[in-house]
């Protein structure tokens, strides 16, 4: 946990923060910092900024600090925080919005998590489905963790839980079109 200069916040990011909060459907001023979100967060033990602190950063106008937190990458979107918040703040939706924004700004705080999801979507774009074997092989190669989960490979193949050839849908063109239409305005700024 780093020391954060609060006076660095101020008003310059307020418009941007309000826009992100509105996308997430969150009223930031509702949060009274009780910390229930963070107490129940399963990933909280590994986070640099707890969900409560992420909200506080935004309340204080410290947008870049929030966007550069590894927490927004570690969030598993389990929705425990949003479910338990006594003020109805959808923290999980906020984490998701911040992560999408960080990606747009090419602020990648966790390269492996980013790589995994990029590869996942690349496969879906190619095949229309997620081929687990190809995804694992590509991830291991590109992350440098060559032997990750190889202890399970023999049983997976022997039992028919894994197959080398990817399943491919017939209308892959429809999927490529969906990707194109959704992502065409998504180039990093």
């Amino acid at each position: 946990m780093d020391i954060i200069e609060l006076s660095a916040g101020g008003t310059q990011h307020q418009v941007e923060i309000a826009r992100l909060a509105s996308i997430a459907g969150v009223e930031l001023s509702s949060c009274y910092q009780c910390g229930k979100c963070s107490a129940g967060c399963p990933e909280g033990f590994a986070m640099d900024e707890s969900p409560r602190r992420i909200i506080r950063l935004l309340q204080l106008g410290l947008l870049s600090e929030a966007l550069q937190a590894r927490s927004i990458w570690l969030c598993a979107a389990c929705d425990t925080c949003s479910t338990r918040c006594p003020k109805g703040v959808d923290i999980a939706a906020l984490m998701e919005t911040l992560r999408q924004e960080a990606k747009r700004k090419a602020l990648i705080r966790d390269k492996n998590i980013h790589l995994f999801h990029e590869l996942f979507l690349t496969n879906v774009k190619w095949f229309g489905r997620s081929p687990e074997v190809i995804l694992s092989a590509m991830y291991n190669l590109m992350s440098g963790n060559l032997f990750q989960d190889m202890d399970a490979a023999a049983h997976l193949f022997k039992s028919g839980k894994a197959h080398f050839l990817p399943r491919r849908i017939k209308n892959t063109q429809a999927i490529r079109q969906i990707f194109q239409r959704c992502l065409e305005k998504e180039e990093p700024q």
């Binding site: 990606k103 999801h117 990029e118 879906v124 489905r129």
Partner: peptide, 12 residues
């Protein structure tokens, strides 16, 4: 087709 799972909703 694939639903996109977490990878899609954390991306777009």
């Amino acid at each position: 087709n694939c639903c996109g799972a977490t990878s899609a909703h954390t991306t777009n």
